[in-house]
Design a protein around this nucleic acid. Structure first.
Lengths: 212, 212
DNA sequence: GCCTGTGAAGGATTTCACAGCC
DNA sequence: GGCTGTGAAATCCTTCACAGGC
């Protein structure tokens, strides 16, 4: 009977969880949907409805227990555990990703990196050892890698995605500027600052010269 | 009568434009909504409907002229010109952004970077000179900066956003892990790989152990 | 025969508004 | 009195399906 949960809802939960972490760090014990909504620029009704897909976590007249709700969300999202990640591509972008300190504290452990350039093989970037790309599949299998990060040039990105999928990875974070294809049982998210820029210019263009 | 165009539509246009660039580079002269849709995993009806917000660009029986449609989309999005960008924060992340070569070829020129750390001031990162943060407002005004990129620690990010907005910037690309507040006439986009990861784990968690 | 552009239908998501509980 | 949880209403977005042009 677990009715299908909209993807938009799932995408908002990590934002709620992040805000709750901050509230917890600030020593807040309880928060209302109203207060949380103001923090996040979301309507209180939206928050309550989103949470209602998963259960009844609040108390009438009071609001939500910050720690309790955070723990619930972490469980729902599956971020209450360690995930094994591998990185493909250690060019400039890949190196920046390897050196980025934001993944590990959230439970995403980059176990290894892979590259087609033999000159990179054996080096260590941000604490991650670079392997030759041909070892990708065996590493994924032997180390139970859950998530792949793609940071190769656009021309090779789909091939890398295909290899990750074939090797059994079910989630991919793609930094390459392509619309990658994946089977329906694989989840993919794209990080593309240029696309983000290009959608913003539509709105600032309007403000110039023209009407209202 | 320019009926309001949904934001989801605007967000898809850059993806269409990117695909058209590739088709153009591959020497394709014409493309149907069907073919473009297969390339992008989007339904043909969606593409046609999206484009219909802006005009009638296709020819029945043939499809769309690749160059013509691309030019139209670039004009609609405002990516047919140069934009002035400034970067705030040149820590590890900010440096990686400054060194990233993907913005300039798309018309986004990073004119300057700013940081509160005087040890960074005067240095050059990825061809961009670092200024002291207090020069932010005067630089934005004098150089007509359109877009700000925020790459400072979370604790300072909202303050930086506020300063950018006060200085007249109307679009912000935010890499800091916060839900920043901006006035309604300012457009903001968030780049947050951790949030992307955290929404994917919901789906791969389901695949494990459990049902169906 | 093929493919666009588009009203209309359908589906999804958000917001409303209020009963019920603390 | 304040705030949640939630059906119902409203809004938004996608898909259908077909008239019309090439």
């Amino acid at each position: 009977m677990a009715l299908e949960i909209p993807e938009v809802v799932i995408n908002r939960l990590p934002v709620y969880a992040r805000a709750l972490s901050e509230l917890a760090a600030a020593g807040e014990a309880v928060v209302s949907s109203q207060a949380l909504g103001e923090l996040l620029d979301v309507t209180p009704a939206q928050i309550r409805k989103d949470l209602s897909y998963f259960g009844r976590f609040g108390k009438q007249g009071r609001g939500y227990n910050v720690h309790g709700l955070l723990a619930k969300l972490r469980e729902i999202l599956g971020i209450d555990r360690q995930w094994h990640v591998c990185l493909v591509g250690v060019g400039r972008l890949g190196q920046a990703i390897a050196e980025y300190g934001g993944f590990r504290p959230q439970g995403f452990e980059i176990l290894a990196a892979f590259d087609a350039d033999v000159a990179m093989v054996g080096k260590t970037v941000g604490g991650v050892t670079v392997h030759f790309i041909d070892e990708l599949e065996s590493f994924i299998t032997s180390h139970n890698v859950d998530i792949g990060i793609v940071a190769v040039p656009a021309a090779h990105a789909q091939a890398v995605v295909d290899r990750l999928v074939a090797a059994g990875v079910h989630a991919i974070l793609n930094y390459a500027p392509i619309s990658a294809h994946v089977p329906r049982d694989v989840t993919i998210r794209h990080i593309d600052p240029v696309l983000a820029m290009q959608s913003m210019t539509f709105y600032i263009k309007k403000g110039e010269g023209g009407g209202k």
